[in-house]
Computed example of a mutant assay.
Amino acid sequence: MVAIRHERAPVTAENLSPERLKVDMAAGCLMRSSLILRFRGHDEMEAGLVANGYQVPDVREAPGRPGREFVFVTERTT
């Protein structure tokens, strides 16, 4: 039997850090996994792409989340 528990994630304006605890009762194992999701603004995202050798000819709204998420159309410059 395996039990999985999701822990409340600390949330800031820029980060979300969820954690998951998985317990394998038969094997007596406890595993914890975590990740950090970082939210970037439009300008920060575009600057990061340009700094890493990309042009950004177009930015579109994500179809399922207009005004909240964006798709950056890029071209490699180097």
Rank of each mutant, 00 (worst) to 15 (best):
M1A: 07
V2C: 00
V2S: 00
A3P: 00
A3G: 03
H6E: 02
E7P: 01
R8F: 02
A9W: 04
P10I: 09
V11H: 09
V11M: 08
A13S: 11
A13Y: 02
N15A: 05
L16D: 01
L16M: 13
L16Q: 05
L16S: 07
S17M: 13
S17Y: 05
P18Y: 05
P18E: 03
E19W: 06
R20M: 08
L21Q: 06
L21W: 01
K22L: 11
K22N: 09
K22G: 04
V23I: 14
D24Q: 12
D24T: 10
M25L: 13
M25W: 10
A27Y: 07
L30T: 13
L30H: 13
L30K: 15
R32K: 15
R32F: 07
R32P: 00
R32M: 13
S33L: 08
S34E: 08
L35R: 05
I36F: 05
I36P: 00
L37C: 02
L37M: 11
R38W: 00
R38D: 00
R38G: 00
F39A: 07
R40M: 02
G41S: 14
G41V: 06
D43Q: 12
L49M: 10
V50T: 04
V50L: 07
V50P: 01
A51E: 09
A51Y: 00
N52I: 06
N52T: 14
N52P: 04
Y54L: 11
V56Q: 01
P57H: 05
D58Q: 13
V59G: 04
E61V: 05
E61L: 14
G64K: 13
G64R: 13
G64N: 08
P66K: 15
G67A: 09
R68D: 08
F70Q: 07
V71A: 11
V73D: 00
T74S: 03
E75Q: 15
T77Q: 10
T77L: 12
T78S: 07
T78H: 08
